[in-house]
Amino acid sequence: MTVFFQSLVNALQWGSFYALIALGYSMVYGVLMLFNFAHGDVFMVGAYISFIVATALTALAAAGTIAIPGWVVLLLTIVCAMMLNAIVGIIIERVGYRPLREAPRASAAITGLMIGIILETGVLAIMGAQRAKFPSLIQSVTYDVGGVFITNKKIMIVLVSIVLMLALDQFVKKTKWGMAMRAMAFDYTVVPLMGVPANVIAALTFAIGSGLAASAGCLFGVAYPVLDPYMGIVFGWKAFVAAILGGRGSILGATLAGFLLGFIEIFVALIFPSTMRDFIAYSIILLILTFRPHGFFGEPHSARLRL
């Protein structure tokens, strides 16, 4: 039983990352009808930005320039990284996708792959091939709850993720900008004619998606403090699977599917030989998609899809 609860805790943390990244895929798809295949690498860039910000802040704190505790540094790092990565997202949209908005969808998908390679090799050139060590901002404390080991990091990661997801949900539902995004998702062609600035909404969508990816990158650095320029590729694919599983364009779906993916991976590795983990985990997901081809919350193909 402790094994079950221990794995539940592990899966919650692991699933948070998938959920945060899947949200970016899903939102961009919902509004612009395109899969941003560079999103895994946007996550990697977010992790590196967090690394730079955190290292700089830690150095300042160590030099005595600013006296702030580690958790404040962490909070500042997340906020800074989200803002900086949002700018990266806006640039990607402006340079990579906007010129191709009327081009065939395949061109946009290929553009995503190319941007991904540019980001990977760019970070490789700037940061070097050696692994970056994410500074330990908060002292890891392990709590033993009846044989289940929970660290303060795990609690923090899951809480921050849930807060961000709720904030996103409220933003999309309650604000004027959120309404404009939903309207764009409803009809991409007509809504701009009614005075909704399509380019601004597109940029905003990318900014939010990239911001969430940066928060995932920062939290990832806290949990797994070894970064390399290619860390985003497979992670991006898996989060993409979560976005599809949740239903393209669905925020709730992407969140739940992200967590579900984390659970499946963790529990499959627990029950079956770990060598078979991804083989079995993704076979299960393939099976789910066979019976629910549009994911959990996706709608069947309708007029609103331009694919």
């Binding site: 094994v3 221990q6 794995s7 592990n10 943390q13 692991w14 990832f220 797994y224 070894v226 290619y230 860390m231 497979v234 991976e265 963790i266 529990f267 590795a269 627990l270 030989p273 770990s274 060598t275 983990r277 991804d278």
Partner: peptide, 20 residues
């Protein structure tokens, strides 16, 4: 006798199994 694949970052399942 637990394994993972290159680039994996989370070993919690394998380690939970090992501890058990």
């Amino acid at each position: 006798f637990e394994s993972f694949t290159t680039k994996d970052a989370d070993f919690s399942s394998q380690l939970t199994k090992i501890i058990q």
